[in-house]
Simulated scan of single mutants.
Amino acid sequence: MSDVTAFLAALRDVHPDMARYGLNGGCFRVYLLLKQAFPDAEPWYDSDHVITKIGDCFFDIRGEVQPESEVGATYLLMDPLIFNRAYSWDQPLLAPGHSDGGSK
């Protein structure tokens, strides 16, 4: 899986904050990028973080990882029904009553 680790190393080099972003809300988007480069990629989720399974190995922005949850949950294949919510994990929540900039 050296192609995957090389891809992730190049991704981390894109911007100094990329590794932090990939661990703080951007993990699903890291999966989406990996899916473009490695079509057999699958998202696995533990209620806190998405890792990507390619072949028999798991990856996140750091490179190859073990599928051991830091929050004590079990990683499961991510249900596509949660994909829509996952797109916004890296976006700040709007405060109640805050306009999103739409017209009145």
Rank of each mutant, 00 (worst) to 15 (best):
Y21C: 13
K35W: 10
A10F: 05
G26I: 05
G63W: 01
R85V: 08
S2D: 15
A41Q: 03
L8E: 08
Q91H: 08
N84V: 09
M18N: 12
S88A: 06
T52E: 08
I61Q: 06
V14E: 06
L76M: 07
I51M: 05
G63T: 11
D13A: 13
R12S: 05
V65E: 05
A10T: 09
L23T: 09
S99Q: 11
L76W: 00
G72I: 13
I82N: 08
P39V: 04
A73P: 03
W44R: 04
M1N: 06
C27K: 03
A41K: 02
E64G: 07
F7H: 15
G25S: 00
S47K: 13
A6V: 14
L33K: 15
A19E: 14
L77C: 07
W44V: 00
R62N: 06
N84W: 09
V50Q: 00
P67D: 15
V14I: 11
H49C: 11
F38N: 03
F28K: 03
P80A: 04
F7M: 15
F28E: 00
Y31I: 02
E64F: 08
D17T: 09
A95Q: 12
K53H: 01
H15N: 12
M18K: 10
K53N: 02
F38S: 06
V50E: 00
T74V: 08
M78K: 02
A37L: 11
D13K: 10
D3T: 13
L8Y: 05
T74S: 05
P43H: 05
Y45M: 02
G25L: 00
L94M: 11
G72K: 14
H98Y: 03
D3E: 15
I51Y: 03
L34S: 02
T5D: 13
P67G: 08
K53V: 00
R85I: 09
T5N: 12
E70Y: 15
G102D: 09
S69H: 12
G22L: 06
L33Y: 05
F28N: 01
C27I: 03
F7V: 14
D56V: 07
L81F: 09
V71R: 14
Y31R: 03
A10M: 05
